[in-house]
Amino acid sequence: MAINVIKAGLSTTVQDLGRPGFYHIGIPTSGGMDMLSLAAANLLVGNTAGDAVLEAVFMGPELEFTVDATVAVTGADMPPKVDGVEQATWTSFRVKKGQVLSFGFLKSGARAYIAVSGGIDVPVVLGSRSTYTLGALGGHHGRKLDAGDVLPVGQGRGAAEGRTLPDGLRRKHGMPAELRMLPGLYWHRITEAAGERFFEDTWKVAPEADRIGYRFKAGHPLEFVPREQPFGAGSDPSNIVDACYPYGSVQVPGGTEPIVLHRDAVSGGGYFMVGTVISADMDLIGQLQPHTPTRFVKVTMEEALAARADRRKVLDGIAAGLA
């Protein structure tokens, strides 16, 4: 019951719904950056929503199956192929023992989720199979996949092939991207004019965009409200006494390029934050390619909770459609 990794892709890791509960000692939750697509891929192959899958960024792996399995690929639009024959995304298909799963070029989005019936059966560490590469923890030996790796696959009945999600429930990759943000944290450190411009500007995803965080550039530098720096904070006006960083928080080192922390977040540090991207839009970030034009959209807590409920409805719809 295994998959042989022939080519690993650019950065392919084992992920599930994450490892909450250890952020206070610097271990982030990890897990799929686009949780909705991860859950959908699992449900398509008859797994539970939180089984471990492969997350492949920008480029797919090449995998030889040593066992028959049902597979589904969701998230980024990156066409899967079985022995060279293209398969539909967001749809389950069979891969027979000895066949090779490979991928065509990425058309849109950034991260594809590859679910296999039975799930990727790496050991559970601190309650999760997710990979946290910075801490060499979880997943397949705490790292991204390499050619030659052998991945264990769990026992699973496997759903029928041809199960598919209606178009309305699939991830859309819109342009320009809009990330809804609740201002707060150290928002008071920048001037009113700088705050207004922050939301007016169209930012661009920088090449430094990974599971730890997404950096954005091309907006105006932020102007700070003058103050004498507090003891222990450091001399730059963007410095604070090192504090914990929320998931989705938007820090702006030096006031120049915002960084949105994601599932493998550094848990804390000494940079001020202007607010937090709402939970409903975290999945979306994982599908942004470098250079994607992006706007931050100011929302209230009420709007954040409504968006959260909407996302829950989509997830419930996916589960109901595939029950």
């Binding site: 904070a233 989705g248 928080s249 607010g275 937090t276 991207v277 709402i278 939970s279």
Partner: peptide
């Protein structure tokens, strides 16, 4: 006190460091 999105509350006990 400040909300960090819809899932976090950030609490600054003081701007400056002290025991």
């Amino acid at each position: 006190y400040s909300f960090g999105g819809d899932e976090h509350i950030f609490v600054e006990c003081d701007e400056e460091m002290s025991l």
